[in-house]
Each structure stands twice: as C-alpha cells, then as structure tokens.
C-alpha cells in the first residue's frame, strides 16, 4: 500500500463528475468569501432605512433587507461566517477525536471500552438541544456555536479513526512493524495515520457541510454569530416575519446554504471515489 495515492488520483479526479462539480461550487463559494474581505457591492454595516425591502433590481441584484442593506453583500460576508464556524468545528473534531480514536484502537481493553462508551454518551444527546444548553451557559455567539458543533464532531472522528485503525492493526505491514520492535505510538504515527488520512479527509468534508447546516440552524434560532456580522441563518430568521412582504429575503440566503452544502457533499462523494475506490459502495 502506498502512502500517497495523489499522483494516481489526479487523473481519476478530473474524470469524476461529482468531484469536478463539487470542487467548482466550493471554489466559487470560497472565492466569494475571500472577495468579500476586499470588496462587496455595498457596505453591510450601513443601513438605509428609506430603501428597505426592495425586490431584486439592477442596483441590488438580490434586493434589500428590512434595514435597506444589500442582500448580495450580506450573503457574501455571511459566507465567511459559515465557513469559519464549520472549519474550526471540524478542526476541533479532528484535533481531539482522531487522537482519541487512534489511542482507543492502539490500546484496546478498558480504555477502548471507556472511550467508546463516552462516544455513545455524547451521541445520545440531541445535538441541537445540547447546543441550546451550551449557549444558555455561555451566551450566543460564533465562538459558542463553534464549541457546540465541535463537541459533536469529536465522537464522529473518534469513531471513524478507531474503526479504520482497528482494521489496520491485524494487517501484515503493521505486524511487521511490531516485529521490528516499534511501539504502539510510533506505529500509529508512522503507519496507521497515513493510511487512514484519506478516510479522514472524506469525513472532514462531510462534517464541514453538516457544520454549515448546523451553523445556519443555530443562527436561525438566534444562537449563532451576532449582528452586525451577517449570517445566513439569521437572515432567514429575519425574513420569516416578512415573508409576505419580501419573499426574496427568505429565498436567497436559503439558496446560498443549499448551493454551498451541495457543493461540499458532491466534493466529499467525489473525494471518496477518487481517494479510495474500496469505500465507494459504503453508505
């Protein structure tokens, strides 16, 4: 087994439709987010009460909201928020979950048992309700949304890492390494981790898209990032009472979420096919 399937993967990737479409969409969203740092059609911090609730037009492509802000600009800046929250919460899951899962696989026995039971415990909590409780303790805000989403990413990555690592431990190349006298920690870092990296990348993509959805949900119930930072979920919340007056306020932020999540899911599917054909038929 080679440690890196990338060179071989490149040509395969270009032929994979999911991967190409997903990468394109994700790329566009990422560019939009980066662009918003230097340029947006209008400033999102300035209100124009007189020009509120305007439907889409040439001057405001996606219309204006109830404070007269440009919705396109809001969506662009809001993408930063979604991406940042999802990214950091995935990073938390990776940074804590993967070592735990690898440790459990390497040690086995009661440590494995305990860690997996803790996993079950976290899984047993309804995620959104727990997020509500977490924000009741710490108050709403982007950081707390990250914590709430991140906590639930930990057991996901722990389970994936442990499962994959367990299937590797009885393999010959690991048995060989053990015969050479390498310790569990060294084997984990030198042999196990590189071989499960693909799997983790795929899972990270999936969790990233779930993170975008979760952030939108939390913001929608008022627990995500706070004004003046625009967020897609809160834009939808504000649109709700005005849906009869200004349906465009509800339409576009929702489309932004769907397109972003769709792009990430396609990218994840594509990556799975490209990086590890064996996994193709799972899920």
């Amino acid at each position: 087994m080679t440690a890196s399937p990338w060179p071989e993967g490149m040509s395969k990737a270009i032929g994979n439709r999911s991967f190409v479409v997903g990468l394109t969409i994700t790329g566009i969203v990422a560019i939009m987010a980066v662009l918003s740092f230097v340029w947006t059609p209008y400033a999102v911090g300035t209100l124009d009460i007189a020009g509120k609730l305007k439907p889409p037009s040439w001057s405001h492509w996606l219309g204006t909201d109830h404070y007269g802000r440009d919705i396109l600009s809001m969506i662009m800046v809001g993408s930063r928020n979604s991406i940042a929250v999802a990214f950091v919460s995935v990073a938390i899951g990776l940074a804590i979950g993967v070592p735990l899962g690898l440790w459990a696989a390497a040690r086995g026995g009661w440590i494995d048992e305990l860690l997996m039971r803790l996993n079950d415990l976290v899984f047993a909590f309804p995620a959104l309700l727990s997020a509500v409780m977490i924000t009741a303790v710490f108050g709403p805000g982007a950081i707390n949304a990250i914590i709430a989403i991140g906590i639930f990413n930990i057991p996901v990555f722990a389970r994936v890492a442990r499962g994959a690592a367990l299937s590797l431990w009885p393999r010959e190349f690991i048995l060989g390494a053990r015969a050479c006298g390498k310790g569990a920690a060294r084997i984990t870092i030198e042999h196990v981790l590189p071989n499960i990296a693909n799997l983790l990348v795929v899972q990270a993509t999936i969790q990233f898209s779930l993170g975008i959805l979760a952030e939108a949900g939390l913001s929608y119930v008022g627990l995500g990032s706070q004004p003046p930072m625009p967020s897609w979920g809160r834009m939808l919340f504000e649109a709700q009472t005005m849906i009869g007056l200004a349906p465009h306020m509800a339409l576009f932020p929702g489309l932004a979420i769907v397109i972003t999540v769709l792009g990430l899911n396609l990218l994840g599917d594509g990556l799975r096919d490209v990086l590890d054909p064996r996994l193709r038929r799972e899920r």
Binding site: G45, T46, L47, I49, Y67, P227, P228
Partner: peptide, 10 residues
C-alpha cells in the same frame, strides 16, 4: 432597535 442604534453609533 439595537442593530440600528449600533450602526448609528458606528
């Protein structure tokens, strides 16, 4: 109101 006042104070 808070959102508007915050913008005006800015």
């Amino acid at each position: 109101g808070g959102e508007i006042i915050a913008a005006e104070l800015r």
